[in-house]
Amino acid sequence: MDHLTKLEELLDQANLDIKDGRYDEATNKLEKILDMDPNFGKAYNHLGYLYEVKFKEYEKGETLYKLCLEKSPMYPAVYYNYSILLSTLGKWDELKELLDKAINIPGITKSTIWNEYGIMFEQQGKLDEAIEHYRKAALGTLDKSVLERAKGSIDRCKMKKELM
């Protein structure tokens, strides 16, 4: 088995650990991957997710996402995860910069990125811009649940506009 295959296999095992709620085991496997190859960017993304979502250590999560972007800038998953963290932290300028880059990454789900723009603008009270981006998310998907969520987000923004 070659080096990369071994790393990918360990990453898959860490993913299963995460799904099964075995966060310490997953963390150990991911750190082992990085010991074997500090340039394997996907492992930084998965560790960042654990630190953000499971351990609530946002700064550590952010550092790990940045390392993933540096090592594997074409890895779509890090854009989804990091954008949610930046949104949680209210770092709008950094988030907009990340989304502007993400929308051009091959293999990225554009409707997900348009939705993240919508959330960002809605949280800033820029409701017309939010509606415009939720509309792009709706028109860019073939997934009925994504379409329904986008329609719901547009309706929510229109209700907020009535209150202004």
Rank of each mutant, 00 (worst) to 15 (best):
Y79T: 05
G118Q: 06
S72N: 11
Y75Q: 04
Y134R: 05
E70Q: 08
L86D: 01
E132I: 05
Y134A: 07
G140Q: 04
W92D: 05
V78F: 04
Y134M: 08
K60R: 13
L98M: 11
K101I: 14
A130Q: 03
K144Y: 08
L95A: 03
L127H: 07
C68L: 06
E62M: 11
T112N: 14
V78E: 00
Y44E: 00
K66E: 06
Y79K: 06
A137K: 02
A138L: 08
S111E: 14
A102E: 04
K91R: 15
G48T: 03
E116H: 15
K60I: 06
C68Y: 00
F40R: 00
Y75K: 07
N104L: 13
L89F: 08
V78C: 08
M74E: 14
H133W: 08
W92K: 08
N45D: 11
Y75N: 09
L85M: 09
Y58W: 11
L99G: 01
E62K: 15
W114H: 13
Q123G: 12
L142A: 11
E52A: 14
I84E: 09
S145G: 06
L99T: 06
L98V: 07
N104I: 09
Y75R: 09
L95G: 01
T109Y: 10
A138E: 04
S83Y: 03
E57D: 12
K110D: 03
P73K: 08
G48F: 00
L127F: 10
L69I: 01
N104A: 15
T112G: 13
A130P: 01
S145V: 10
I103W: 05
S83F: 03
N115L: 12
Y117E: 01
L98Y: 00
E57K: 15
N81T: 05
S145R: 14
W114T: 03
S87A: 11
S111L: 07
G118E: 02
R135S: 12
K60Q: 08
N45T: 14
G125R: 07
Y44V: 01
M120I: 10
I84H: 11
G125K: 07
E70D: 05
H46F: 14
K136G: 04
K66G: 00
L69G: 00
M74R: 15
L50S: 03
R135D: 07
G90L: 06
L98H: 02
E52K: 12
A130N: 04
